[in-house]
Every structure is written in structure tokens, then in C-alpha cells.
């Protein structure tokens, strides 16, 4: 569960990617993350949810220290993660935030034995350890992610997808991090294996006292794992709140649409409202619609929604929503 202690604060973060193609010399940008503010508290698991083009992965990379924002600040325990365009030189800071990605085949070195992959990380984190101490730490890491010593002498190609993802978790843990960004880490795995990896994540969260940013498109996973949810649409957070409260009574029409469309969510039997059956496709993040960005697909959009961009505001206690009409129509 989360505490009140904020550990990561995002202040008006923006990231635009320039497109090489400009019409009549006009520069075009993909507005991947467009003015996002968010506070993440110690010990909580926050789910960043959205579909392709929502900016969730870009935001995850910014939080992980892998991508400097164009504007805004990312503050970890009072320290700026970036100095302008460059990642802070503070090494401790870099260790404390770790990321795991969807595809372990691209994040693990295929030519390194699992032991060497872990040992390298352990040595980076701890100077001057003896070989025995490194080996001991590697063994503990593997045990904590549910693998055994036999795996140490294997190469990535000898492991299954689930095992590889566990190694990726173990390597992140070698840094003794406080925050773990998990970007679609089970999306490529078969469902029966998916649960194993998520259970490992739940275990190590307790053991290492982690704060987790869990990026996913699967509402079922959000329900099962997260304390807080931030729903993103076209570079913006459109709804933020306690997961339980958002699932019971989603306020933003897009959240309602996501829950209505998602088979895993309807299997759990939470929210479903045919008024919010999916329609249309997300517009291009290069040229988002005027007014509310969701207005092209929203079943309850009215005049104001086509004129004014609704700010993220606290519509009910601890419930933040960017919608002019969320409370008027359900």
C-alpha cells in the first residue's frame, strides 16, 4: 500500500518528437507526452494505462531516466532527475530507479551467461566485492525471482520467455532500486506463464520495499496489481485515482469505454455500459483535435468539449478527471 510520502513528482512534463516531414516548411511534432503532472507515493503500485499513442511508454522512459523531457521536471526525493537535457550525474539516483521492458530478448545480452549478466550489475552497484560475494548475491537474486542455481550457467536462448523476464527483474533488483518501472513486462508471454511473472513482481515488491510504475494496456492486470491508476489518452492523463474507486465508478468517458471494451474487465464483472461501446479510432497525436482530445469518440461530448480543453481537476475526493461533463452524464 502507498504511504503519504511522495517519492517521485512530475511537473508539467512535455515530450514532443519532431517529424522529419514538414508541410510547407512547417515543423510537425508528435505530442507524445503533453503536459503531465503526477505524484507517485512511496510503496504504491501505480498503473499507467492507455492504448498505442497514449504516451504511456514515453512517460515511463522519462521517469526511468532514459529520455529527457522537453519541458517540465521529474523530481525524485527532492532532486531533479534531469539537468535540462541531460540525466543527472548523481549515480545513486540512477541506481534507485530501474526499468524492465516488454521484450527480454532485446534487453538481455544473448552472448552473456545469466551469471555474468547479474554479476556485471552487482559489480556496478557495489565496488570491490570479492568473487564469492558477487556469486552469493547473484544466487540470492535468482532465488528471489523464483529461479535456481542451474540457471546461472545458462544463456538467454536456453530460457523460456517467462524465465528471461525473471532474469530481467533480478538484474534490476541488483541495483537495489526504490522505484521499478515495468513496461508491458508480461504482454508477450502466454497467459499461463504471465501469472508466474506477476507473482514474482508482487513478491519482490514486498521484499525490496519497491514503488512500482506498472505500464499496461490490460485492464484486468490493472485491477489485480495496482493501488492507483492513471489513464492516458493522446499524451494526457485523463483520469487518476484509486484503482478500486475508478473501476467501480469510472468518471472519464474514455475510462468507461476502455472498461466496456475490455474482455478481461468484463470477466471480472465490474463496469460495463453499452452507451460507451467503442467507436472510432484515436486521432493522430501530431494534430490532436481542438478542445477535448477525446471529443471525436466521446458519446457525451457537447459544445464546450469542442472548444475548451478540460483541465485535470479533482471532481470527487481523490478523483482527478479531465472532462467537462463527467458528472453530468453517466
Amino acid at each position: 500500500m502507498g504511504s503519504d510520502e511522495s517519492i517521485l513528482i512530475l511537473e508539467r512534463v512535455k515530450k514532443y518528437f519532431p517529424l522529419s516531414l514538414g508541410l510547407r516548411g512547417k515543423k510537425l511534432y508528435v505530442r507524445a507526452v503533453d503536459d503531465v503532472s503526477l505524484t507517485i507515493r512511496k510503496g504504491e503500485t501505480i498503473a499507467l494505462v492507455g492504448e498505442s499513442g497514449s504516451g504511456k511508454t514515453t512517460l515511463g522512459r522519462i521517469i526511468a531516466g532514459l529520455l529527457p523531457p522537453d519541458e517540465g521536471r521529474v523530481i525524485y526525493r527532492g532532486i531533479d532527475l534531469y539537468n535540462g537535457n541531460v540525466l543527472s550525474k548523481n549515480k545513486e539516483l540512477r541506481f534507485k530507479i530501474q526499468a524492465i521492458f516488454q521484450n527480454p530478448d532485446t534487453s538481455l545480452n544473448p552472448r552473456m551467461m545469466i551469471y555474468d549478466t547479474l554479476a556485471e550489475a552487482i559489480r556496478v552497484r557495489n565496488n570491490g566485492l570479492t568473487e564469492e560475494e558477487v556469486a552469493e548475491k547473484a544466487a540470492v537474486l535468482l532465488e528471489n525471482v523464483g529461479l535456481n542455481l542451474d540457471h546461472l550457467t545458462k544463456y538467454p536462448h536456453e530460457l523460456s520467455g517467462g524465465e528471461k523476464q525473471r532474469v530481467a527483474i533480478a538484474r534490476a533488483l541488483a541495483m537495489n532500486p526504490e522505484v521499478l518501472i515495468a513496461d508491458e513486462i508480461v504482454s508477450a508471454l502466454d497467459v499461463s506463464v504471465r501469472a508466474q511473472v506477476l507473482n514474482v513482481l508482487i513478491d519482490v515488491k514486498d521484499k525490496y520495499d519497491l514503488t512500482i510504475v506498472f505500464i499496461t494496456h490490460d485492464m484486468g492486470l490493472v485491477w489485480s496489481i495496482s493501488d492507483k491508476i492513471a489513464v492516458m489518452y493522446l499524451g494526457r492523463i485523463v483520469e487518476y485515482g484509486d484503482t478500486e474507486s475508478v473501476f467501480r465508478r469510472p468518471l472519464h468517458p474514455y475510462t468507461r469505454m476502455l472498461l466496456t471494451s475490455s474482455p478481461t474487465a468484463s470477466l471480472i464483472g465490474y463496469y460495463r455500459n453499452d452507451k460507451y461501446k467503442a467507436r472510432g479510432e484515436p486521432p493522430s497525436p501530431v494534430n490532436p483535435p481542438k478542445g477535448c482530445r477525446f471529443n471525436t469518440r466521446c458519446p457525451i461530448a457537447r459544445d464546450k468539449c469542442f472548444e475548451e480543453d478540460p483541465p485535470l481537476s479533482e471532481l470527487a475526493k481523490n478523483r482527478w478527471v479531465a472532462c467537462h461533463r463527467a458528472l453530468e452524464e453517466e
Binding site: 499461463s192 506463464v193 501469472a195 507473482n199 485491477w223 489485480s224 496489481i225 478481461t264 470477466l267
Partner: peptide, 22 residues
């Protein structure tokens, strides 16, 4: 049963998984 249990997500509970692999 295992397949269904591993997608029938419960709130804040360990997920039921099928041990081993294909």
C-alpha cells in the same frame, strides 16, 4: 480451469498460475 483462473483477476491477490511451461 488453470487458463481461466489465470485471467480471472482478483483484486490484490496472488494470481493463480499454471506451473511449468508448454
Amino acid at each position: 480451469r488453470g487458463l481461466l483462473e489465470s485471467v480471472r483477476y482478483e483484486r490484490k491477490a496472488k494470481l493463480k498460475s499454471i506451473p511449468g511451461s508448454i
